[in-house]
Amino acid sequence: MSTRVPTRAIVMISVSLILGSLFALAGNQMSIEWQGLPAFGLCVAVAFVIQWLAFIPAYAKQTERFYDLTGSITYLSITAFILLITFEQLAERSIILAAMVIIWAARLGTFLFIRISKDGADNRFDEIKPNPLRFLAAWTIQGLWITVTASAAFVAMLSQNSHPIGWLGTIGIGLWLTGFAIEAIADHQKRIFKSTQAQTGHAFIHTGLWAYSRHPNYFGEIMLWFGVSLVALPVLSGWGYVTLISPLFVLLLLTRVSGIPLLEKSADKKYSDHELYHAYKSQTPVLVPRLTKPVLVPSVEKVKAT
């Protein structure tokens, strides 16, 4: 068992670096150069280096408190760098894409940092913090997450192609605005729920947007990255189209890897004897919200079982 854990971590680190390098190569085909280097490849390298630098004090102090904040700072830093080196030929599309990334990263980073400051810890890291390779793998994966999710925006901002915003960009802006609003409102509602849970006596959140979807914040997250990709699409070409995998990567990671599966497993274990939870789970979609608010009625099978 002791040999399997670091081996798995090494594989995760290696895969993250390989995928990050492939994205850098694809994006470089469209990227302008800065100081003789392809700017997009430099952005990818910076995304990983920032995570590794932050890992050092995080491991020394055995804390994950600055993990999400570091990710947000990385998005903001790279976006600011791209705006700086393209300032003289800054296009309307680049300004819109930069605003999308900056507003999203600033809002989410602040929210997550306040949350972990109040909670004191993130139990997802409890088992991996003591192991340097596993903890480093988590930071390296964050570097890949930043690279892939923002790649379409960054490549479009660094592209020399130009194209009017048009109807496709307008749809993308609408998707981003809707997704951002859903994510922000859902996060706020859950934070309010947790702060008043002792008074209400509710075991889990099933009100507000959470009455229509079990994970509305993730639905908003996926939607806004689809919006970013649509805004970036008209100026992409060649290997730059690879960056359009961004929203699909977010969708895959949140629905199949680290997001929904872990939360669902935790909730199933925590509320296994809670009748209302089983009704909520059976009548509320896991991701895509239903149009009408369900009336939570325990199933016949559950009533008989209890």
Rank of each mutant, 00 (worst) to 15 (best):
I78G: 00
I260V: 12
L251T: 13
I13G: 04
I173D: 04
W225D: 00
W239D: 02
G71P: 12
A267E: 08
L83A: 13
V235K: 01
G201E: 12
G172K: 03
S272E: 14
I13D: 06
L230K: 00
I73S: 03
A91P: 03
T140H: 06
K129P: 00
I10Q: 07
D126I: 08
L291H: 01
W225M: 02
L133T: 09
R65G: 00
V242L: 15
P164K: 12
M1C: 06
T74P: 05
Y59R: 13
I103R: 02
I82R: 10
S237E: 13
N28R: 09
E183L: 10
K194Q: 13
N28S: 13
W176C: 03
H206E: 15
T255W: 09
P285D: 08
P285Y: 12
K194F: 10
Q199M: 07
L230D: 00
E88T: 11
L262D: 04
I185G: 02
V49L: 15
E127G: 01
V101G: 05
A45D: 04
G227W: 04
R8S: 08
S21H: 09
K129A: 03
L69W: 13
I245Q: 09
W104N: 03
V46W: 01
Q51G: 08
V242D: 03
Y218G: 01
F193S: 08
S94Q: 14
A9T: 06
G41D: 02
A137M: 05
G20P: 03
N161I: 03
T149F: 15
K61F: 10
I116D: 03
